[in-house]
Design a protein around this nucleic acid. Sequence first.
DNA 1: TAACTTTACGTCGTTCGTAACAATT
DNA 2: AATTGTTACGAACGACGTAAAGTTA
Lengths: 307, 307
Amino acid sequence: MTLEQLAIFAEVAERQHLTQAADALALTPSAVSAAVRRLEEAYGVPLFDRIGRGISLTAAGRIFLEEVRPMLARARAAERLLGELGGLQRGEISVFASQTVASYWLPPVLMRFHAEYPGIRLSLTIGNTATVAEAVAEGAAEMGFVEGEIADPALRIDSLVDDELMIVVGPDHAFAGRHDISADDLVGKTAWVLREPGSGTRSEFEHALARKGVDPERLEIALELPSNEAVLSAARSGLCATAVSGHVAAPHLTTGNLVRVDIALPSRTFRLLRHRDRNLGRAAQKLAEFSLSVAASDPRADLPVCR
Amino acid sequence: MTLEQLAIFAEVAERQHLTQAADALALTPSAVSAAVRRLEEAYGVPLFDRIGRGISLTAAGRIFLEEVRPMLARARAAERLLGELGGLQRGEISVFASQTVASYWLPPVLMRFHAEYPGIRLSLTIGNTATVAEAVAEGAAEMGFVEGEIADPALRIDSLVDDELMIVVGPDHAFAGRHDISADDLVGKTAWVLREPGSGTRSEFEHALARKGVDPERLEIALELPSNEAVLSAARSGLCATAVSGHVAAPHLTTGNLVRVDIALPSRTFRLLRHRDRNLGRAAQKLAEFSLSVAASDPRADLPVCR
DNA sequence: TAACTTTACGTCGTTCGTAACAATT
DNA sequence: AATTGTTACGAACGACGTAAAGTTA
């Protein structure tokens, strides 16, 4: 039983006229006749009565037609879907990303992509760097976004934008506006509100301090909070300093709610992870290009006041 | 896009293993590989990633698989249906029949058929002789049952059983038990309750009387009733006579509720109508044979006391 | 005669299997 | 070395079109 046979059968059955059906199908009456006969003989069921010089459905044919019609509809739907999957009209992309990039840099990229290709469903899963890399390697994610270093031979890695870890304070804080803050001032001269231990931001900050010769243990930590927005709210009070990703701080710096402290911390890079061998669908490929071009257009576009 | 291609795709997709899928499909890996490739190239959509020495679904492939699975299920259902339509497990037979045969002789035949082939749906439509013949000629009915003569070159006609028109009265009626009733006695010696003008029974009765030299107009008609059971109920009172088909009267004669008057009226024949050229499905053909054999087994089987 | 379906037959394209090949574990 | 997927190629099969035949209105 072939889809073509069924389509031919349906066409003939609905027109009750073999020649007209043949025209509609762009076939010769001979081919149509043969196709119907094959279908009938394969199952031993007469579907049409050859009556006089015409043909008309048998009872079995009528019943079968009821089954065939919705089936052809499904087939056409599947065919259309397959075509759309090749184009950019339909699809589903699974993206894994680590905390910061998922929360700050990525959303506007995804939204812009969605605006351009509304038929593509995007699903974003947040995980740590290892989780993201594993998902991409296994194929659970089409692509991943992480901050920081990663090394996996199965992965193809592209740098996107630089992210600066920065120290911010409220405008009323003693550090605000000053350009002579040294690393040593970070201990004793201010209280700190930081992300919780285990978070990427916290560990990066501590490593950065250590590289500057400051023992993180000596910081006066007033509070540990489990979200970026929480520590920023605390800093806004002017009673403490905090350290966050530049992408996190950016919107607050532009409004003047927060002020950056003029101490350089090492920057890290957002990276795009793709599988080395696995082919991306056209949609996913487009999203990857999208991310790369957004990143390339201006690595600092989202950090207008970070200098 | 072929059903076979889809089946192959689904098999490979579900096993994530081309060779195993090939075994399951009784094909060579080569054929399976080629089939998948054809499907992919026809629509320009990579459905599998060839990764290492294995293959795994792409995102597009996963989505497509969700569409393909229910579709293959439908296809298999249609295929099964087609097979069953050829056998006697499924089907639908439309039968047209005229009043008397539809109401009395046919039902037990249909019930016996149904008991043997419960998967076959029977639909019975009642009409007059002309309606029935037309339905069969047009194909609206697989077969028809009528009483009396019919002539249509498109129809194949078989005689089934004889039906006697008979005069019946209640046991208290003056005619009951008498064997010396003549045709002339039918006028003036009893009141009549008859089926309405236009019914087959009424017109046949009047023609029969006319052939016996009795003017139907002279009958003392007390009441005209539109159903066989109604006239029989009236006759049971003993106050009138009536004329009905032997098949209609039979059950009442056996119980003694009614008595037949010993006057011979011409008999008519129940006939089976089939289209001369149109092929019956196996089920319908079986039903026709069924009717013929029931009729042949004993033409009087349903008329035990009609003599 | 005209309309319609079917049969006969040659041709072309598709799909299959065998066998060799390439790549991975 | 064994497993797995792919390519090359020849053979079998199926479907199509042309042309002719059979049937009916």
